[in-house]
């Protein structure tokens, strides 16, 4: 954890776009706020992608606790493809993102096979995926066999200045100084909202998650819907995982995602299974993740371990908040979440 923080603090390109050098004099306070918000978006992007993926999976009634392992597999794939990809830099980055999606999807497909075909309990299967693929498992084995930690990741996601808008005061650094994946994640939030609440397929998806028996009677294939959305969710989680080596920490280390997959799981509950609320939650946690670095960069003396603990601590606090009181009824939770569906025999 400490090593991770140091690497982060030293990491050049990726973080520097979000962490401009402290400026002089009077503007410091407003600048600090902008920096905090901008880095909240930067560090929140992988959480957002993974949580959107998990939301999609859970909307079909499948709980995938293998999110952390799936993100790590995506991170390995992205890192590997960035080193071994061919073509100009921008193309290699696209290849890396595609590789991360494919491998993330495959990891989630294993979960889908286990719970849908082999009828393993969803919680147990998800844990098994994270143990198999996690920081001490396959992702570490692959990274070591493929010698990913030999040098820095060559081709990364760089901030794209959209039409020179990044020079705008306030809005520039906040909204127009991000990399392509962050912009894509905003499009994705809108697209998923439309898909869930305005499209026929989205309606079918929600039906499967709420009442698989009814959906089945309507002629919707429960198994096919669940397979498709579990795999799609895994692809997004893989993308979120790849954000770490490609944008945040440009040198591989085992367990590079640092438990963010679990935070993303909590975010889905926090966001009541709705894309737009998940976006808010992801940036909130992005802020907690980056606060330490922002303060350190400004020589504020705070215990590194305390700052490092903030996202985990806040996850518990937030989870307590949303699981108590008025939210107790689990607003938005798919009714059939975590349960298997077997058509009754005649």
């Amino acid at each position: 954890m400490i090593a991770l923080a140091t690497v982060l603090a030293q990491a050049g390109d990726g973080a520097s776009s979000a962490l401009p050098v402290a400026s002089n004099g009077s503007g410091v306070n407003s600048n600090l706020l902008i920096v905090i918000f901008a880095s909240a978006i930067f560090y929140g992007t992988p959480l957002l992608l993974a949580a959107l993926g998990e939301m999609l999976t859970e909307r079909s009634g499948v709980l995938n606790l293998g999110l952390e392992g799936t993100m790590l597999m995506g991170a390995v794939a992205g890192c590997w493809a960035s080193i071994h990809g061919t073509g100009p830099g921008w193309l290699v980055v696209i290849e890396a993102l595609l590789a991360a999606m494919v491998v993330g999807g495959l990891t989630a497909a294993l979960h889908a096979v286990l719970v849908l075909t082999f009828r393993v309990e969803q919680i147990v299967s998800g844990l098994a995926i994270t143990i198999l693929a996690g920081a001490a498992g396959l992702s570490s084995y692959l990274a070591n066999s493929l010698e990913l930690s030999k040098g820095p990741v060559p081709h990364r996601l760089e901030a794209i200045d959209v039409g020179g808008l990044s020079d705008l005061p306030v809005a520039g650094p906040l909204l127009f100084d991000h990399n392509a994946l962050t912009y894509a994640s905003w499009v994705l939030v809108g697209a998923l909202w439309w898909y869930l609440f305005r499209s026929r397929r989205g309606l079918h998806l929600r039906a499967v998650g709420e009442s698989p028996a009814t959906a089945d009677a309507m002629g919707i294939s429960v198994a096919r819907t669940r397979y498709a959305h579990t795999i799609a969710g895994g692809a997004l989680a893989g993308l979120g995982g790849a954000f770490y080596p490609l944008a945040i920490i440009p040198l591989w280390s085992d367990g590079i995602t640092g438990g963010r997959g679990w935070i993303a799981l909590a975010l889905v509950i926090f966001g009541f299974w709705r894309p737009e609320l998940i976006l808010v939650g992801a940036y909130l946690f992005g802020a907690f993740s980056s606060l330490g670095l922002t303060l350190q960069a400004r020589n504020v003396e705070v215990s590194a371990q305390l700052l490092d603990s903030l996202p985990y601590l806040m996850t518990i606090v937030v989870l307590v908040f949303v699981s108590s009181g008025w939210a107790r009824r689990r607003l938005g939770a798919p009714a059939a979440l975590g349960t298997s569906y077997e058509r009754e025999e005649r």
Partner: peptide, 20 residues
């Protein structure tokens, strides 16, 4: 390489669960 033990443990777990 590091991670091989964890991979084997994970595979044992996954296969046992599926075998059930």
């Amino acid at each position: 390489p590091a991670g091989l033990v964890g991979t084997l443990q994970g595979l044992l777990l996954v296969c046992t669960l599926a075998g059930e």
